[in-house]
Amino acid sequence: MHIEYDRENDTAYVSLVEHIADGAAVRQLPVDGVGADAEVFLDVDASGRLLGIEVIGAGGALPVEVLRGASTG
């Protein structure tokens, strides 16, 4: 697992696999109930395998410790 955080855009991406090839994520599923200031999307491949998690508004949705330990982009 690898976490990248873009402070400027307040977005985080949690990669659950080592490498996601271009076009591998064929669906992006929204997650409800995260909070008013955050959006979460699950990236899945054609077989339904979860590849990664995108968090928009990450500063209000993820613990500060997680964001501090993330790679920045």
Rank of each mutant, 00 (worst) to 15 (best):
L16M: 06
S15A: 14
V64C: 04
A36E: 15
D43R: 00
M1I: 00
G69Y: 01
E8Y: 00
L51G: 05
P63T: 05
D6N: 13
V31R: 09
V31F: 02
I53L: 15
G23T: 03
P30D: 14
D45L: 10
V34A: 13
L42S: 07
E65Y: 01
D37K: 10
Q28D: 11
V64E: 15
G59Y: 04
V26R: 13
A21S: 14
Y5E: 03
L67V: 01
I56E: 15
I56K: 14
L50E: 13
V14D: 00
G59L: 03
D45I: 07
E18C: 02
G48R: 11
A38L: 04
A36I: 05
S47M: 10
A21Q: 13
V31L: 11
L42D: 04
V17H: 02
I20D: 10
S47V: 06
V34N: 12
G69R: 11
A24S: 11
A46W: 01
H19L: 12
G69K: 07
D45V: 10
G33W: 08
E54R: 13
V64D: 15
S15T: 09
M1H: 05
G33I: 08
G60F: 03
Y13D: 03
D45Q: 13
L42G: 06
V55Q: 03
T72C: 12
S47A: 14
A46C: 09
E18S: 09
I56L: 15
V64R: 14
A70N: 11
D22R: 13
V44N: 07
A12P: 07
R49C: 01
R68C: 07
I53T: 09
L62N: 11
G73T: 12
F41L: 07
R27Y: 02
P30Q: 15
Y13C: 08
H19A: 15
E54A: 12
A24L: 05
V14G: 02
V14T: 03
L51E: 03
V40M: 12
R68K: 09
G60H: 09
L62S: 09
E65W: 01
G52H: 02
V26G: 07
A24E: 14
V40P: 00
G73M: 03
V40I: 09
A58M: 07
D45C: 11
F41G: 02
T11I: 14
E4G: 12
V64H: 13
G73A: 12
L16I: 01
A58N: 11
D32M: 12
Q28V: 04
V40G: 03
I20F: 05
I56H: 12
A70V: 02
A21H: 09
V66F: 06
S71R: 13
L50D: 13
A36N: 10
A70Q: 09
V26A: 12
A21R: 13
F41T: 09
V55D: 02
H19Q: 14
T72Y: 06
V64A: 15
G60Q: 10
D22N: 11
R27Q: 15
E54P: 07
G57I: 06
L50W: 08
I53H: 06
G73H: 10
T11E: 05
A24W: 00
G48Q: 12
D6S: 06
I20N: 08
L29K: 03
D22M: 08
D10H: 08
G23P: 05
V31Y: 04
Q28E: 12
E54H: 11
Q28F: 10
A61L: 07
D10V: 06
A25F: 08
H19E: 15
L42V: 06
